[in-house]
């Protein structure tokens, strides 16, 4: 714990609403403690702005412990900032130095329209999920949980995919603004489990079609998504998704 504080210069994207044009504004953040989280730094800055009669910066956040997937900022050109495997809310100011200049921008993608400042609309992810991001189990009809043994390695693999928190950093990082890592994570989570297998072919087709409808770009294997993902979701799942699609193609008649 240190007593030193820092002063920073922030360039923040300000945009009144989805239709308005936006631009970067410069602000000073004063008296920032290295123990603060990045969002707490913004809280403090906002309180300072309010006192100066400037409208505070709008940004999404909720759990502030890296699991809800609300927080979404591109910090100095990197989604969720310079630290690996963390979300913005888990990033701490000790990663920065006194006098630093920090650029803060929203996720940028046609599929994620900006609502205001740093806040975007990620409804596209919900719609991909609605396309087939589930198993068709109706409550009440489930067999005993131990009826289908799932070997640990297989379970662990599905769990690696299931760790996705739906934050959208993969889209923000992708040079093509593609949502393929998210889509792949969901397809892999379900298709790798016996419970998801029966609908696997239908699922992969439907979810990819929904992904495309939203205006995301196409994956060209830059792997930037993996580097930005706070949960370490691997692009190997995209390869898996492709394989699932190849397997599903001959089954076209099912749809």
């Amino acid at each position: 714990m240190s007593e030193k504080t820092m002063n920073l210069t922030l360039y923040v994207w300000r945009q009144a609403n989805a239709k308005a044009p936006g631009k970067m504004e410069r602000y000073e953040a004063k008296g920032i403690s290295p123990d603060m989280s990045f969002l707490e730094m913004l809280d403090v800055t906002n309180e300072q702005l309010i006192k100066q009669g400037i409208e505070p910066i709008v940004f999404d956040h909720d759990c502030r412990e890296g699991i809800c997937g609300m927080c979404s900022q591109v910090i100095n050109g990197v989604p969720h900032g310079p630290e690996e495997l963390v979300t913005v809310c888990q990033l701490h100011m000790r990663r920065f130095n006194d006098g630093d200049t920090i650029f803060i921008e929203p996720w940028r993608s046609k599929a994620f329209p900006i609502e205001k400042d740093l806040m975007v609309d990620r409804g596209a992810f919900d719609r991909i999920m609605q396309a087939y991001g589930y198993t068709s189990i109706t409550c009440g009809g489930a067999p005993d949980a131990n009826d289908h043994p799932i070997p640990k390695w297989q379970l662990d693999r599905a769990m690696d995919a299931a760790e996705c928190i739906g934050c959208g950093a993969c889209v923000a990082a992708c040079p093509n603004a593609s949502g393929m890592l998210f889509t792949a994570a969901k397809v892999a989570h379900l298709n790798m489990l016996p419970q998801g297998k029966p609908e696997g072919a239908r699922r992969v087709k439907a979810m990819i079609a929904a992904h495309d409808l939203e205006g995301f770009g196409n994956c060209t294997n830059h792997y930037e998504c993996e580097a930005a993902c706070p949960k370490g979701v691997k692009t190997a799942f995209i390869s898996y998704l492709n394989k699932e699609l190849i397997k599903a193609l001959p089954k076209g008649a099912q749809d």
């Binding site: 360039y11 100095n76 921008e105 930037e224």
Partner: peptide, 9 residues
Amino acid sequence: YQQKKNLVT
């Protein structure tokens, strides 16, 4: 982006 840093591509 005004600033974009690619990490691995």
